[in-house]
Amino acid sequence: MKMYIKSVVVDDQAKARTFYTETLGFQIKHDIPMGEFSWLTLVSPEEPDGVELALEPGAHEATNTFRAALMADGIPFTAFSVDDLDAEYERLTAAGVEFTNPPMTAGGAKMAVFNDTCGNLIQLIELLDQA
């Protein structure tokens, strides 16, 4: 058994497609129209055959209640790893991305949290060498 899809529910698929590709830098793997919505998945250019990120429409009201509650408390539900957190923080801040949590060291990792503009907070993690 392998990991295949990780889903993020988004307010607006078109807006999310732009943010996740142009701002974050992920690549579209599948973009298949299915009625009102699309089956839209992304991969990291560093791992084109890796786990896919599905940008799912918030068509079920329960997902929106759940996401709003996490957003209010500043809690991220999805994490991406980066090699250099400070550099990514600089790059994304310059691109206008809003961070709710500036970089901080937590245990064996450095982390930060940003708003994806589509109803979610995303955590960036740089794993530190555990000497």
Binding site: D73, G74, I75, P76, T100, N101, M104, T105, A106, G107, V113, L121
Partner: peptide, 20 residues
């Protein structure tokens, strides 16, 4: 600071572990 950040800092720096 958000609840998440405050919770993270209090936990990481002082080992306090509470429910949300």
């Amino acid at each position: 600071q958000t609840l998440f950040e405050l919770y993270g800092r209090v936990f990481n720096e002082h080992g306090f572990c509470l429910t949300r």
